[in-house]
Design a protein around this nucleic acid. Structure first.
Lengths: 337, 337
DNA sequence: TTGAAAGCGGTACCAC
DNA sequence: GTGGTACCGCTTTCAA
């Protein structure tokens, strides 16, 4: 319907002109709770429709909050990350915010750059899913009145909101499951990316095992992912004294490990090998794996983020911990072989 | 270092005051190619650093282009979608743009709302990965000087840039592979979501088969995904005259179908059943599947999007087609059984 | 090189 | 209920 190539965004002034009213009237028409007569409103709406007018949220954000929330994330294709980004964007969207995604590497420099972008765009809040920003930058964000939410990150940063999953619980429970299954030679599969979460799961699992006199063989074959799990499996079974029960600190590692075990070595799961994962990504439920794992309560975490954004003081200081939900499937025996 | 709770973003005016210069000087310091003396520049930079100043891109976007690009996407957790969002955000980021992700359902109403958001935030461009926006809205975006890029969408929309993968080629090649493997009872697995891409792959595959006198059994068990593929497998093998060669229009469908075939019916792939997928998601390469499929050249497509944003006229009108790359693995026999 | 001033597109406050 | 006006933070003339 729009006739010519306008080449540029239509503004309230143009609408006002076309409708024969003032710019104020146009503005009022588009802000709830303003007083406009039915007649004026209709004329404005007509003109706006004809011109294809849309309120400029950038300009609006100049005075008040921008309603922009930044998500800083690395390794977006990882199912668990994709899942987090998915819930968060959906919930933010639903509560009237718009999401900027900054896809970055996890190193400090990249994350710092991302945080600075966040500041440039006057985001109301920044949610960090990957990497660990330097404390000084978080400080700057805070000083600028921006909220910072760290998810599953190191918990030593002050001022920021900090949510995470109870990794210790998972480590302990994983050991319990393997022990109940009668596993004797325990293994732990992790990656060379020593993030706080991964380290914690590993530490607690090993401690729990030691406490009951079990030794744990550790396999670290590369970055977090299927390939590293597969390689770990090759290492584990390509030698004597192979494990018969392993806790993989991530589902992706677990899936790779299982594939190496069954396809390369013909090991049968859970008869000859029990495997516990963590994350409960969609693939863990696939028929070829049926992995027993722990679900990260993504929805609950996203809800908490939203609550925090809505009322920053709603949670006290300190880390907000979420219980991972044990997801029993078929990769662990219910009792000794 | 910032002492008190500023509660609000620091502006150029504050920096100017602290540095004892004009606001103009501050602005110039942060725009390349402006003329500032070394001395002034240093003082501004010092003040800015101390205050934690960051240029407000929202305000900047008021005069010139916003540098914002919107990605409209549904089903973000799907590996292929996550992959697309991943490349696009990374490349956009690298070329100095910032990405807004609008995670929406694929129905027209939701997509329309997303496009309106896009307009509200004065995005320079909108990239649509899911759903099909109404032509009138695209028209509005265009009239507002915004570029619209549709990826793997219906190609009947005018004005917008349109990129997609050559679905016909995949359908034809899939038939060729199955035929060469000596398959006699062909099947096609698709979903109930009849998107243009899926329909095209199906149509061409069936036509190619018919042309050589083969009938094709079609299985549609639900939305695009693993579960529907699995269910399709149950239907295919829970009856007489089961297929011995199938083209699944999506890897996720293929993986589900394969799992049903092997775990529920003990069918061996590729000896008793050959399977061809499409997308080449990471999981297709996993040891449990080793699926022969077609790779979507995501990187090349993203590059093209970037080129388009940089110079809208670089491509003529009409759809830009990308060749899917055949990815030979183990789910199809090289010759008759 | 520098500062003053105008304008980008809104919203809020002011009289009328 | 309405229009005029000031201001949000920035970039960009324009003089000096």
């Amino acid at each position: 319907m729009t006739d010519s190539k306008t080449r540029s965004f239509v503004s309230a002034r143009m609408v006002a002109e076309k409708a024969g009213v003032s710019r104020s009237a146009v503005s009022r028409t588009f802000t709830d709770g303003a007083s406009v007569s039915e007649e004026t409103r209709r004329r404005v709406l007509d003109a706006a429709g004809a011109l294809g007018y849309h309120v400029n949220h950038l300009a609006r954000g100049l005075r008040e909050r921008s309603n922009i929330v930044c998500l800083v994330v690395a390794d977006m294709t990882t199912p668990i990350r994709a899942g987090m980004v998915d819930v968060l964007t959906r919930e933010l969207q639903a509560s009237g915010k718009i999401t900027m995604v900054i896809n970055t590497k996890a190193d400090t420099e990249s994350v710092s750059q991302a945080l600075r972008q966040t500041l440039n765009y006057r985001a109301d809040a920044t949610v960090v899913l990957s990497g660990t920003p330097p404390a000084s930058l978080i400080e700057t964000c805070l000083a600028n009145g921006q909220q910072v939410v760290l998810i599953n990150r190191d918990d030593k940063l002050v001022g920021s909101h900090n949510l995470g999953v109870d990794n210790a619980m998972a480590g302990r429970e994983a050991f319990f499951l393997l022990r109940r299954a009668g596993c004797q030679r325990l293994g732990l599969v992790t990656s060379t990316a020593n993030t706080a979460s991964l380290v914690e799961r590993k530490r607690v699992f090993i401690e729990a095992a030691r406490a009951e006199g079990f030794d744990v063989a550790v396999f670290e074959a590369g970055p977090t992912g299927y390939a590293s799990g597969f390689e770990a499996g090759r290492r584990a079974f390509g030698r004597s004294n192979a494990p018969d029960g392993v806790f993989c600190v991530t589902d992706l590692l677990a899936l790779g490990f299982m594939d190496a075990a069954s396809h390369e070595f013909g090991i049968s799961i859970p008869d000859d090998l029990c495997v516990v994962g963590f994350d409960d990504i969609e693939q863990a439920g696939w028929e070829s794996y049926r992995l027993t794992t722990f679900t990260q309560p993504l929805k609950a975490m996203a809800d908490q983020v939203l609550a925090l954004l809505h009322d920053p003081d709603s949670a006290g200081s300190g880390r907000i911990l979420f219980e991972p939900i044990p997801r029993w499937r078929k990769s662990v025996r219910p009792g000794p072989a």
